[in-house]
């Protein structure tokens, strides 16, 4: 156990996955000598060679498409998309081929491809370096979508994603890359599709994931000072959603706030709110509240602190759930 940054935990997880299985190959832009823009693959080409860590030309359809071909031939490819906004040229490959293949093959074949994407804002970057595209993937049947919030989860989930026989869209919150946390390289990982209750509480449930997890924990700390007990759930897996963990919590607390960076309309918050009202309607003391990015393109960096959901906006939402 030692404090480790998420980027280093991901690196360790990929290294372990490559040691465990020589069918694992990495492909992406500048992932070899440079180690990727965020250095997640640092040193891997040096240690595993350029047949297993492949620097690709610019071309995300080519990256994901060739990974699909490699997976069909028996490899377990891990693609790196350099930034969230760069995944869109690969959407066709992801939506029409990667997500559909098991269905097409009647379950007889699947594509064990991981698509790693740095996501979200808060790093002073620009629009297409700061986006939160998770809802597009969660909306696509046939994909698992995961998003770790801690170095330990990053390490565990990336290894589990590589072992998955089905495609996984692996979202890495950029502003969490250099946050440190304890990392146990031999810990027994939780199931991929299980949300994690990070802080138990009785009065309100806050569901979030990725870079907003520390925000939700800070909200819970402040709530405690104000005499309110907030439960914080880290989703970890955005598709499929762990309904049971959310419903168990809401049936106890009666109040739910969902927070994410992505824009509001048709986002994960809407989906979770719909599921909860459907299955825990009579437990609810108040309407489900969403705290999200706005329905606008991502703003210039000097405005992003206003755009991103922060502690104050989540606290306001908690307050609203007590107004009823």
């Amino acid at each position: 156990m030692s404090p480790t940054a998420m980027a280093h935990a991901l690196n360790a997880g990929l290294r372990r996955a490559m040691e465990d299985d020589d069918r694992v190959v990495l492909i992406g832009e500048d992932i070899g000598r440079l180690g990727g823009v965020f250095r997640v693959t640092d040193g891997l080409q040096k240690d595993f060679g350029d047949l297993r860590v492949v620097d690709s030309p610019l071309g995300e359809a080519g990256i994901v498409g060739s990974a699909i071909g490699l997976a069909m031939a028996g490899y377990r490819p891990v693609c790196e998309i350099q930034f969230d906004g760069f995944v869109f040229p690969a959407m066709n490959q992801i939506v029409t081929q990667l997500a559909k293949y098991r269905h097409r093959a009647e379950g007889r074949a699947s594509l064990p491809v991981v698509v790693r994407i740095p996501v979200g804002g808060g790093i002073g970057a620009i629009e297409h370096h700061s986006e939160s595209p998770e809802a597009y993937f969660a909306h696509t049947a046939g994909l698992k979508v995961v998003c770790p919030s801690s170095p330990q989860d990053a390490y565990d989930l990336v290894r589990q994603a590589v072992r998955s026989d089905d495609p996984v869209v692996f979202l890495e919150p950029k502003r969490s890359y250099w946050r440190k946390g304890e990392l146990d390289l031999d810990a027994v990982p939780a199931p991929v599709e299980r949300a994690r209750v990070l802080r138990a509480g009785d009065d309100v449930t806050v569901v979030t994931y990725g870079a907003l997890v520390p925000v939700a924990l800070e909200v819970a700390r402040i709530c405690a000072e104000e005499g309110r007990s907030a439960e914080v759930i880290d989703l970890r897996c955005l598709s499929p959603i762990d309904d049971a963990t959310i419903l168990d919590s809401v049936r106890r607390t009666g109040r739910l706030v969902v927070a994410h960076e992505a824009s509001r309309t048709a986002g994960l918050g809407a989906e979770i709110a719909a599921r909860v009202q459907d299955r825990a309607f009579y437990s609810l003391e108040a309407p489900v509240q969403r705290v999200t990015g706005y329905d606008t393109p991502y703003p210039p960096s000097r405005l992003e602190e206003d755009w991103l959901p922060g502690v104050d906006r989540v606290l306001d939402a908690v307050d609203r759930t007590f107004e009823h």
Binding site: S66, G69, L70, A73, G74, Q97
Partner: peptide
Amino acid sequence: LPVAVGIGLH
């Protein structure tokens, strides 16, 4: 075509 590249690479 990109899928063919992956298969061919193998």
